[in-house]
Design a protein around this nucleic acid. Sequence first.
DNA 1: TAATGTGAAAACCTTCACAGCT
DNA 2: AGCTGTGAAGGTTTTCACATTA
Lengths: 194, 194
Amino acid sequence: MYVRALTQLLSEGISVVSSRQLGHRLQMTPAQIRKDLSYFGRFGKQGRGYDVHFLLEELRQILGLNQEWDACLVGVGRLGRAIINYPGFAPEGFRMRAVFDSDSRQVGGVVGGLRVQPMSALSEAVERDNITIGIVAVPAAEAQSVIDQLIDSGVQGILNYAPIAPQVSMHVVIRNIDPVLALQSMTFYLRELD
Amino acid sequence: MYVRALTQLLSEGISVVSSRQLGHRLQMTPAQIRKDLSYFGRFGKQGRGYDVHFLLEELRQILGLNQEWDACLVGVGRLGRAIINYPGFAPEGFRMRAVFDSDSRQVGGVVGGLRVQPMSALSEAVERDNITIGIVAVPAAEAQSVIDQLIDSGVQGILNYAPIAPQVSMHVVIRNIDPVLALQSMTFYLRELD
DNA sequence: TAATGTGAAAACCTTCACAGCT
DNA sequence: AGCTGTGAAGGTTTTCACATTA
């Protein structure tokens, strides 16, 4: 979120920002901003604030955003195709290197310039292409099994689009994209506004 | 997440669950489960656990998931069309009642059975169709303005797909769907595994 | 003057541990 | 015997407030 906000500030031509201003953008208190940043270093100048360009580069370095990350996708149904064709990943350094599907009718087809491979080719591809991130776009019923296969193949991070609560061991990093859950976690508060 | 897990348990024919078992599914401690649930009531039976069907219905009631929620969508580009055609919302009680676009070339077209309306029709439609939730699928540059218009029109919740850090007043509930942010919040931990 | 960085305080959240119920 | 519900303890996060520096 900091990287987002700082990138936007830079594009607006703002070169110095205080914790107060940055907090306003991110809906956070100035104290929270300063504590967060102080955990990683002393990036600010007293009386002045933070140099936007400098802080942005520091954070990008800390987060590992200055390198390329190789990902693969499992599931080339409607959702999977939308993800493959989404133009937002590449500019941020996330490259789709391979796509897989357990449906043999999909295997061999071409989606977004990549040939769809069978699940049996997963392990080899992960190793060969240095793939660290697996993206899951299969139906809920298959998702846990696919996640297990990805992890067995050596993937270290999972971006899961299936509407389930996946179980993964602690050393695997997982993030869920779940619009229905987002809506369901919202209605409680809407209800109370009646 | 509880609703998800309980629904799955029910479909597996499991009718009673302990905090230990539920915790295992959700990767949480038994104590956490019990504390969470105790905040809303006393749903369990000592020595036995929780009746899955009963607890599920109670939670659905508390969260407001036993009613229909009316939503509208702004932005019928590639992403917007994918959202409209996503079959996961309706079964959970979220109905897409109207769609809008600021591009006059899109207005009048039909997407997913709904006629695309101009932004000028937003306020009236929100009121007429009782729309409480606005879904934002426009480019980043337009997103904050669209969010503001939705809120001005009386929408109480926002599901935002644009890759920005939106600013909304406290009484509006907002959830962001942001796969790039999810990946960027993951790389820090992958980096450390080297 | 204006803002950071940071110990200390306050607030919040999670876990423990056990009385009490089935 | 088995498990809940819950005060109390323990731990973590956020906020305060101020010495310090540009």
